[in-house]
Amino acid sequence: MSITSPATSSPAGAAAPLRAGRRRDTISAVFLGVLWLCLALASLFLLFVMIEIVRRGLARLDLQLLTAPPSRIRPENGGVRPAILGTVLVVGTTALLALPTGVGAAVYLEEYADRTRWWNRMIELNIQNLAAVPSVIFGILVLAFVVRAPLNIGAVALSGSIALALLILPVIIISTREALRAVPGEIRDGSLALGATRWQTVWRQLLPAAVPGIATGSILALSRAIGEAAPLILVGATTFVTFSPDGWLSRYTVMPVQIYTLVPQPDQASKDLAYGAILLLIVILVAMNALAIYLRNRFQRRW
């Protein structure tokens, strides 16, 4: 004879799990509503900021903004040409320093490194940690070892490029490793089975197949570098420059630093110039992100 528990046989006992489930559903719905509310508030704030930037910066987004240097005497006739050229020089040099180094380090760690060795595990741990380090720390590091002794090259464009290269290097390494891991293992095994060396497999099979992920991660990392100001201020990005940089060892400024200088100025013309520079910087960043999406989609269709 079976014995039924009074708690489970009574209507009150059967309704207890139902009430608990409804309470969990209510809490989940409230939490989801709070999340949507936070998202809506953040989106409204971002929309308001974008509308204000476009409204005030569109009038200054002209040829004069691109070709004229800034002016303290007549700021309404000024532009940000030195900052644009400085940004191109610094970010271009950053790409030359960071992309080959980052991709090469990722290939070594993913394809060649013995993960049972303690030093390889230490390198991987440090790369993961460096990706979360604040950007100003890299500026302090370059200030101590590059701008001053032992290298002592001074507050020049090359110092800023080194700081930004160190900043984005962990991001490039991590994104490249993820792109290599996403390549099907059959491609690697088939190449090795046909007699190709490990280097031939990496160069002719893995890297071409991983181009979408590598290109996307690299462009997004460079987009972050374009918008950085804190490390460059520490390593000598001049706040007010009326001349264009003429090389890696010259004084320079970049667009974020130029904007940082223009915003607190008391005259309205400087503020309008700052809004125009902000809008130009946003256009550049959107274009770079669009390029990353285009390259990813194009190479994914090919492979």
Rank of each mutant, 00 (worst) to 15 (best):
P266R: 04
I259K: 03
D272Y: 11
Y260M: 14
A287N: 08
Q258A: 13
L273K: 02
Q258C: 15
Y294F: 14
L281W: 10
T261E: 14
L273D: 09
S270C: 00
Q268M: 12
P256S: 06
M255R: 04
D267K: 01
A290H: 07
A290E: 11
V257L: 05
V257G: 02
S270Q: 02
N289G: 07
L262S: 03
P264A: 07
L262Q: 05
R296V: 00
L281F: 11
M288T: 04
A269C: 00
M288W: 09
L262K: 01
I293Q: 15
L285N: 12
I259S: 07
Q265R: 13
L281V: 09
M288S: 10
Q265G: 06
I259L: 06
K271Q: 14
V286S: 03
Q268I: 13
A277L: 04
R296K: 12
N297F: 12
I278H: 08
Y260T: 10
Q258P: 10
D272N: 12
V257Y: 01
L280G: 09
R296D: 14
I278F: 13
Q265K: 10
V257K: 05
L279P: 05
D272H: 06
T261W: 14
L273W: 06
M288R: 08
T261V: 01
V263K: 00
P256E: 02
Q258G: 11
I282H: 08
L262G: 00
D267C: 10
L285M: 13
A290P: 09
A274S: 12
Q265N: 00
L279H: 01
A274H: 04
A277M: 08
L262I: 02
V257S: 05
A274W: 10
A269L: 05
F299N: 10
I278D: 10
N297D: 13
I284H: 06
I284R: 04
L273N: 02
I259H: 05
Y260V: 02
A287Q: 09
P266T: 01
Q268R: 13
Q300M: 15
G276W: 05
Y260Q: 13
L295V: 08
V257E: 07
A277E: 00
M255W: 07
N289S: 07
Q258T: 14
Y294H: 11
A292M: 04
Y294L: 12
L281G: 02
G276C: 04
L295N: 07
L280F: 14
P264M: 04
